[in-house]
């Protein structure tokens, strides 16, 4: 099977998965107890007003019609209106999505940049102080709860030393880049970096620890394989054996985990967002759930689902590049 064919197949599968997510969330909403109209109007509203709103929102239609209309809207990017704020759900999501993506990607970069070299050092200097240090770090990293780490970082680095701001996101990454390009000053970018540093470290620590462990154990596994001895026997320089051969093969399982983790970061950074008052999708989802704002909940879940699917397709295509046997099977 060619690479293109493989990719097309994965994308079609992804569309199917997204459709499944839409259907399940729609079914959940339909099965949820209570009259949705109650969530929109005041409890004391007249029956006429209720009926009028029911018609306007389309809740008087049979369920399958509502479902088809929802799907129809989805195709053109219309996710409906929020019950609570009466605003367009797609706009409400679009406002928050960049912050979430910034944080998820920053946390992943922190993890990859720290974890992979650490894992490599740990595996190639097994049973040396560097290895013990890395192993200890990953053990501590995996067992430290996010909210505690976040608060401690704020306490020490922000409040006491004053190195980083306490919370918030005064400027978005795109604005910061635009300002750098138009004015030539990096001030906004520095502000953005200083604000995202602590949340990214907080969110990335567990991830860093996990990838360090995976890299170490994967590399040790790989180093024990016969092809490594054969590559040594042909006289290839050690650097090429370690990086071109061994690390590359070690990356195959790591890419999978990276993708899955990035997917969870999109929806699951709720605690970190709360601690740092970071205006992301996670905090909006939580408030939507409190308000039983179904269109918003549904919209956010679908966006997270689409994100997951996209990342998985990306991961699969990287995976196919790294491991030529995938496209063959």
């Amino acid at each position: 099977m060619s690479y293109a064919k493989f990719l097309v197949k994965r994308i079609l599968q992804g569309v199917f998965v997204v459709w499944g997510v839409v259907t399940v969330t729609f079914a959940l909403r339909a099965a949820a107890p209570g009259d949705p109209v109650n969530l929109i109007v005041d409890p004391g509203a007249s029956p006429e007003l209720r009926e009028q709103i029911r018609r306007e929102v389309g809740l008087d239609q049979p369920l399958y019609v509502q479902y088809l209309e929802y799907l129809q809207g989805l195709v053109v990017g219309d996710l409906g209106f929020s019950y609570q704020s009466r605003r367009d759900v797609s706009i409400m999501i679009a406002e928050r999505l960049p912050a979430t993506l910034e944080l998820a990607i920053a946390a992943t970069i922190v993890a990859v940049v720290i974890a992979i070299p650490l894992g490599v050092v740990s595996a190639t200097r097994r049973h040396e102080p560097a290895d013990y240090g890395a192993t200890l770090f990953s053990l501590v990293g995996i067992s430290t709860p996010n909210f505690w780490l976040g608060i401690m970082l704020i306490l020490v680095l922000s409040v006491q030393i004053g190195l980083f701001p306490v919370s918030g996101r005064p400027v978005s990454f795109t604005d910061a880049v635009v300002s750098l390009v138009t004015t030539g000053y990096a001030h906004d970018l520095v502000t953005w970096l200083r604000h995202i540093a602590l949340p990214a470290i907080t969110l990335g620590t567990y991830f860093t620890a996990l990838i360090t462990r995976l890299t170490r154990s994967g590399m040790l596994d790989e180093l024990g394989k016969p092809y490594v001895t054969a590559t040594e026997a042909k006289g290839l320089p050690g650097v090429l054996i370690r990086y071109k051969h061994v690390l590359r093969n070690t990356m195959i399982p790591i890419v999978t985990v990276l993708g899955l983790q990035l997917g969870t970061l999109i929806g699951g950074a709720v605690i970190t967002e709360a601690v740092f008052n970071w205006p992301g999708l996670g905090s909006r989802l939580i408030s939507a759930i409190y308000a039983v704002d179904w269109p918003l909940i549904q919209g956010i879940i679908i966006v997270i689902g689409v994100g997951f699917v996209c990342i998985n397709i990306l991961v699969d295509s990287i995976y196919a590049y790294l491991n030529p046997r995938v496209t063959d099977e």
Partner: peptide, 14 residues
């Protein structure tokens, strides 16, 4: 130089 017993595991699969 050396030839090994099992050619399939003596080449890097990727």
């Amino acid at each position: 130089s050396m030839i090994f017993q099992d050619p399939e595991s003596s080449f890097n699969p990727s």
